[in-house]
């Protein structure tokens, strides 16, 4: 798997201007993009999915060019073959769990999905250990169950890459470590390359095969962590190096941080 990103975008609101200028390549199966909120992680992820249009640059997944401003290429989101997990999962509240999962494979003229799609839905419900929840509605599910349904909904279309926007932020801390293990299992089971964005160092420690640090709209670091398990000789997770890196990323002076801009707003 190879995601190549080299994009620029300027976002404007009334009193602020945010410049995104990121360039990186992801080669591993589990790539983590780390950065404080406001670093430009979400915009970058949405740009890869085709939900946000960069001003200029180029995006390619596995050699297929999805966006290239110079060549005038901008593949619409629906044709990108990219899976996306939204931060609070964005399950359709008017559809049952089964209908949610089948959504991407059911054309509008069919009242019910075809037999093979229903079969796939049943298999996915089994794999994600929620076989009895098919006719439940999203608002009846717990956070962990919602995440499983959202994963199933994205994976049923066999995407080339799965983009995950802060997948554990909506969960309570007790559940997070379990869902991280589940995500590792899912990656192993479906062999789908993932790009996860997070501001939680623990996510980096457990998940990252390659790490990308974003700050103020720039790519600060690209690190390959040589694959899982991320443990030292004594079996401890190798977080020291990462923590050093993350701490370093916070210390760099930069007058134009979004936080600084917010303060300026409050003063004026």
């Amino acid at each position: 798997m190879r995601i190549e990103v080299d994009i620029r975008k300027t976002l404007r609101s009334r009193s602020r201007e945010f410049r995104l200028d990121v360039a990186f390549v992801c080669n591993e199966n589990l790539n983590v993009m780390f950065g404080a909120s406001g670093a430009g992680k979400s915009v970058t992820l949405k740009a890869i999915a085709g939900l946000e249009r960069p001003d200029a640059g180029r995006i390619a997944v596995n050699g297929r060019v999805l966006f290239d401003s110079a060549a005038g290429i901008d593949v619409p989101a629906r044709h990108r073959g990219v899976g996306y997990l939204f931060q609070d999962y964005a399950l359709f509240p008017h559809l049952s769990v089964e209908e949610n999962i089948a959504f991407g494979l059911k054309p509008w003229w069919q009242r019910r999905p075809r037999h093979n799609v229903r079969r796939k839905v049943a298999d996915l419900l089994e794999i994600f250990e929620i076989p009895t929840l098919g006719s439940a509605y999203p608002q009846q599910l717990s956070g962990g169950q919602r995440q499983r349904v959202a994963l199933a909904r994205a994976l049923i279309r066999a995407p080339n890459v799965l983009l995950l926007d802060e997948p554990f932020a909506a969960l309570d801390p007790m559940l997070r470590s379990r869902m991280r293990d589940e995500l590792l299992n899912t990656q192993w089971l479906f062999k789908v390359p993932m790009l996860v964005i997070t501001h939680d160092p623990d996510d980096v420690a457990t998940l990252a095969e390659s790490l990308l640090v974003l700050r103020d709209g720039r790519t600060l670091r690209e690190v390959s962590l040589n694959g899982p398990p991320f443990r030292d000789d004594e079996g401890r997770p190798v977080t020291a190096e990462i923590r050093r890196l993350l701490a370093e990323s916070r210390q760099l002076p930069d007058a134009a941080t979004p936080a600084a801009l917010r303060t300026a707003d409050a003063v004026s």
Binding site: K46, H79, F92, G104
Partner: peptide, 11 residues
């Protein structure tokens, strides 16, 4: 988000 989710799901 719901509309974006549908777009990413190929609609």
């Amino acid at each position: 988000q719901y509309e974006q989710a549908a777009r990413v799901l190929g609609k």
